[in-house]
Computed example of a mutant assay.
Amino acid sequence: MSTQDSHFTVHHDGVAIQVSRGGRGRPLVLCPGLLTTQADLCELIELLRRDHDVVAFDLRGHGLTSAADRYTFEAFLGDFGAVMAESDHHAPLLVGHSLGADLAVHYAADHPDAVSGLVLVDGANPVPEPFLTEADLPEFRAMAEGLRHEFERVAGTARQVLLAPQDFLDLNIEIEAVRSGILDRYREIDCPIHLIMSTSMAGNGDDDRARWRNENWRAGAERLARERPHLSTSWLDAHHRLVVTHAPEIARLIRDAGKATC
């Protein structure tokens, strides 16, 4: 199947979700992560379009998608389902980064016949220990406040993020809770799954907390591999923004994973 580049809007839960479609080949739906937009993923999208019919979209409150009155995991998952329903792709390969990976896992668990395979990039990880404890909340609050200036800098552009700092903090806390039960969701999925994980999810800092977070991240992926032995994993020497910094490598790994679902 061949398609020309097109853009359309999906309306769901009071949100106008901006969707793009283009390329030729196997159907693929790409879901970005928190604080990431289609504009940030432009290199990866163009590479994937060489041999995939790619549907991509901006999350609520991100990029060209409108703001919302709530930013919860269930709200994002509902938007994801609405895009899937409007895309008219039959059993696409789902690719998700970070929060997008968690959304892909939950969608596939709820719709087992609607997906041919999953490629999960640095997300949906059943880490043994939670990243966010009471001791970490001041650090994450400071991080959220620091992001406010970045949000304001790109306001009105394809890279804008409309979440308030408290929305960002609350959503991260909720994602922790969701991931605590994500192994059960994996058990409901029969299609092929490939993980693409970063070796330095929390960066390359020398502080004990960053090292612990990176070790916890690897331990989660290894835990998942033990639970689901047919799952495959690739590790990239990168940080959590690997979909932006390592687009060619990510595209190659997605292409290889897609062949395994044929």
Rank of each mutant, 00 (worst) to 15 (best):
P92L: 14
H239K: 10
A164K: 12
H12Y: 09
H97G: 02
A67S: 14
D13G: 15
L35R: 05
E43C: 06
R228K: 14
M84P: 01
A16R: 15
Y71P: 01
G205Q: 07
P128G: 06
A221P: 01
I254T: 05
D136N: 03
V115G: 02
E134H: 04
A144S: 13
L163Q: 07
G203F: 07
V19L: 04
V121E: 02
N214E: 07
G156M: 12
E176T: 14
L242H: 01
D208G: 04
D237W: 06
Y107D: 02
R209A: 14
I193Y: 06
T9K: 08
R255G: 15
S234D: 15
G156F: 05
V95H: 07
H97C: 05
W217S: 05
T133G: 15
F8H: 12
A257D: 08
C31D: 04
A91F: 03
A67E: 07
A202H: 07
R141N: 05
L162K: 01
W235C: 07
H246Y: 04
E222M: 08
Q160E: 13
A225H: 10
G63N: 00
E152H: 05
D206I: 09
H90T: 13
H11S: 10
A135T: 14
R141E: 14
T133F: 13
G117N: 08
L64Y: 05
A155T: 08
N214Q: 06
R60S: 13
A56I: 05
S20F: 05
V115D: 04
H106D: 06
A251F: 09
V121K: 02
F140S: 11
T133W: 13
T245W: 03
A221F: 10
N216A: 08
G181P: 02
L30M: 13
P32T: 14
T9F: 13
L77D: 08
S6M: 10
H12E: 13
G123A: 11
I193M: 14
V55L: 12
S116Q: 11
Y186H: 08
W217Y: 12
M197A: 14
A114M: 11
R70S: 13
E227N: 04
H230I: 06
A109I: 10
N216I: 11
L35K: 01
S234V: 12
V10D: 00
F76M: 09
W217E: 04
I254W: 00
G205L: 12
A91H: 07
V54K: 00
W212V: 02
L44W: 01
N172R: 14
R26E: 03
L44Y: 00
L94M: 15
L34F: 13
T3K: 14
T37E: 00
G81R: 04
P192T: 09
S180Q: 13
S2N: 12
A144L: 05
A39K: 06
A158M: 01
H62T: 07
L236A: 03
A247N: 09
A238Q: 01
S200D: 11
Q160Y: 01
A82G: 10
A101T: 05
W217M: 10
A177K: 12
V15I: 15
C191F: 05
M197T: 05
D170I: 02
F168I: 12
K259L: 15
R153W: 00
R252N: 09
L163F: 15
S20Q: 09
T37R: 02
A124R: 03
L103M: 13
G205M: 08
A75M: 11
F151I: 02
G33D: 00
E176W: 01
A144W: 01
A39E: 11
L195C: 08
V244P: 01
